[in-house]
């Protein structure tokens, strides 16, 4: 038997650790979603298919700027000493994933704007005619379009992976301490982005293509979640206990029902039937995928804070 009692009373730390609220999961979700959008639109630019992919290459770049800004607002709201946020930009700390992330975010904005310049929306070109002139100049050079595509894909991968590495670098929280979390959040971001295009695209061909891609991403996500859990279960006792929080502990209902069942398996079945023309495309499946991605971040961030090396409780 071991019973550990402490007189410590620090807010957010005792009696249960809870230092990150809704802001961080929302930021991680939006960061992952934007990462997925950058990879998708970057891929179509690279393949020279930006003219046909209207939603991916016309809507996504500027939408990504707005979504990422929302995510950064959530991040800013989380800071408890927030008027010192600029301190992140007076230094680069190579051992800190957050430092990498803050600089990656700075690079993402110009890449997204360059992406948006290739197919600028009419409401911008009608107000700023020079944008269409510049856009035409870039579009003439296929090497420039490819370069912008590759840059968007690379930064998208960096952004998506970083949102997971950010958590996995914290060895003190056993649930997070798996580097495959980077790959999981990247894949989840890709599936949410593909679902988003599936949801809003008006062209049936683009819709179907992204639904097919989403099925691939969802399948991959299931495999990665399996590997994530196997890694934890086969590791030390504290890592096993961390995995049990999701498998049969307090987070199990949300994890199994909303993340796995409604967020991945059900939309995967529905979308597989839709791309095989067994049922019509329904917005329900992609909405479930996007919500599943958001809930995944909430579950991982909250359960990670519960997982501990030592816990100040009575136990047998």
């Amino acid at each position: 038997m071991r019973e550990l009692v402490s007189t410590r009373t620090n807010p957010m730390i005792d009696p249960a650790l809870h230092f990150w609220g809704w802001e961080i999961p929302v930021y991680l979700f939006l960061g992952g979603l934007v990462a997925g959008m950058m990879i998708l639109s970057g891929y179509f630019l690279f393949r020279g298919r930006h003219r046909e992919m209207s939603c991916s290459c016309l809507t996504l770049p500027l939408l990504s700027v707005a979504l990422l800004s929302l995510g950064m607002l959530a991040l800013f709201l989380d800071l408890s000493h927030r008027w010192y946020f600029w301190r992140m930009y007076t230094t680069f700390q190579p051992t800190s994933p957050m430092s990498w992330g803050s600089w990656i975010l700075i690079l993402v904005y110009p890449a997204l704007l360059a992406n948006a310049l290739i197919r600028p929306p009419a409401w911008i070109t009608s107000r700023l005619p020079w944008v269409s002139t510049l856009s035409a100049r870039i579009a003439k050079r296929s090497a420039a379009v490819k370069f912008i595509g590759i840059t968007n894909m690379m930064l998208g991968v960096l952004l998506g992976v970083y949102t997971g590495i950010l958590l996995s670098a914290f060895g003190a929280r056993p649930l997070w301490n798996s580097s495959i979390l980077g790959l999981l959040f990247l894949t989840s971001g890709l599936s949410s982005a593909a679902a988003f295009v599936h949801l809003i695209a008006s062209d049936p061909l683009e819709q179907k293509l992204l639904a097919k891609a989403d099925n691939g991403f969802l399948t991959l996500e299931l495999v990665i979640i399996g590997m994530f859990l196997i890694g934890l279960v086969s590791s030390t006792r504290v890592h096993l206990e961390a995995a049990l929080l999701l498998l049969n502990g307090p987070f199990a209902p949300v994890f199994w029902v909303f993340v796995i069942g409604l967020g991945i398996v059900l939309p995967l079945i529905v979308q597989s039937m839709a791309v095989n023309n067994k049922v019509a495309h329904t917005p329900v499946a992609p909405i479930l995928v996007v919500l599943g991605g958001l809930i995944l971040r909430f579950v991982i961030v909250q359960a990670g804070q519960v997982s501990h090396w030592t816990r100040v409780v009575s136990s047998n």
Partner: peptide, 19 residues
């Protein structure tokens, strides 16, 4: 220099830090 990001709180296995 601290922005209050709470990464250090997440990183400490002893939960020795607070805001």
């Amino acid at each position: 220099k601290c922005s209050g990001c709470k990464a250090c709180i997440a990183a400490c296995p002893y939960d020795a830090r607070f805001i």
